[in-house]
Design a protein around this nucleic acid. Structure first.
Lengths: 138, 138
DNA sequence: ACTACTGTAATATCTAACTATTACAGTACT
DNA sequence: AGTACTGTAATAGTTAGATATTACAGTAGT
């Protein structure tokens, strides 16, 4: 489990981390019972402070994604995959809505948006071709 | 010129204001030479502090969208519409890219994204039907 | 028992964004 | 000249996010 943190995009680091954990659970990169990296390891690998990682993990516990195993670490909760998979599209949708609303309210046409999404999606696929390491079961 | 400010979405208020001004210039809601609302009026109408509006206007001057007319106010620069129209899709694209990258990197399929964009766009169109007050010339 | 890990918590410090307030110089209108 | 607007600036205070550091209780392996 590796997290990519961007300190310049305005999104709180703890939120970036918790989102990525939830996505990882949703697509099977993290399995039930598996331990998430310790706060210190995650902090080191992402060049972030321990407290910031702890904040993300605390939020994930509150959401029921992680459970604490005292003295050992934090593990993926039994019902986390179902939860995260159900919320995966919602997480994307929530942010997509802001952008589309702004575009719509300012005279961007449906065709322009469709073209924009298509071209950006293709560009991203070329940029980082899919490495299906953890394919989801149907 | 009315600005809608959301204090809870994490985006700096001054950035929300400057973006909305640029969009308004791009689609003809604000014309060359026209005065933008005074910092005090804009601050009152958006329930925001004067300094925050001033910050937005300062940025817009730095970008060449607004020009200062001493003692009178700030007006839309002569070449602002061209500039803003050229940047309009880029402003949307920049934010769209973050979302699509996150989705792609986490196993969301092309079909799911297309469906998501389509359904959200339709929902937004119903929510606020287009009032073509300032149609762009072809 | 010792060591090396876990998570958690408290403290202090920093920065960006925002607010409230006061002040000042330039312009327009009467 | 006086009034009412402009933008601009300085000051001080608040909040959220992040950092650095220290500390402590619980667990596992030796």
């Amino acid at each position: 489990m590796i997290c990519q943190v961007d300190t310049n995009n305005g999104i709180p680091i703890y939120e970036q981390i918790s989102r990525q954990v939830k996505f990882a659970v949703a697509n099977g990169s993290l399995l039930v019972g598996e331990h998430v990296p310790s706060v210190r390891e995650m902090a080191t690998r992402t060049a972030v402070n321990v407290n910031t990682v702890a904040r993300a993990y605390r939020d994930l516990q509150a959401e029921g994604v992680l459970v604490s195993i005292r003295g050992t670490g934090l593990a993926i909760a039994a019902d986390a995959p179902e939860k995260c998979r159900r919320n995966r599209l919602e997480m994307v949708r929530e942010r997509l809505r802001y952008i589309l609303r702004e575009a719509l309210q300012n005279g961007v046409s449906s065709d322009e948006i469709q073209a924009l999404v298509h071209s950006e999606w293709d560009a991203l696929k070329k940029e980082s071709p899919l490495d299906n390491t953890h394919p989801e079961k149907g």
